[in-house]
């Protein structure tokens, strides 16, 4: 089982308390988006090999969404950070 550092609880917590929430840092701007951009937002996601920024929720804990940099090959988590914070440049 992975131990994931929750940036709100400020503690490593067991993976079973978390839910995966998909790719992070997507911006929802329906007023500004062209049809193509809106389609991208709704239906298409990156399929990264390597570090992937993604949302997680500490569902059975503080309940908060936060972001996580995870290597999709090794499953190693490089960083977790609060929602709204920018993606760390280099882990």
């Amino acid at each position: 089982m992975l131990l994931i550092h929750c940036p709100y609880c400020e503690m490593e917590r067991p993976e079973v308390e978390f839910k995966y929430g998909g790719q992070a840092h997507l911006v929802r701007e329906p007023q500004k988006a062209t049809d193509e951009e809106w389609t991208d937002f709704l239906y298409f996601r990156d399929n990264t090999r390597g570090l992937h920024a993604e949302r997680w929720r500490h569902a059975v804990g503080c309940g908060r969404f936060f972001n996580c940099l995870r290597d999709t090959v090794s499953d190693k988590i490089a960083a977790t950070y609060k929602a709204g914070e920018p993606r760390p440049s280099s882990p």
Binding site: C9, R13, V16, E17, V60, G61, C62
Partner: peptide, 10 residues
């Protein structure tokens, strides 16, 4: 104090 799991129960 925290929320957590006891087997399948929150």
């Amino acid at each position: 104090s925290t929320r957590t799991l006891l087997v399948k129960a929150e």
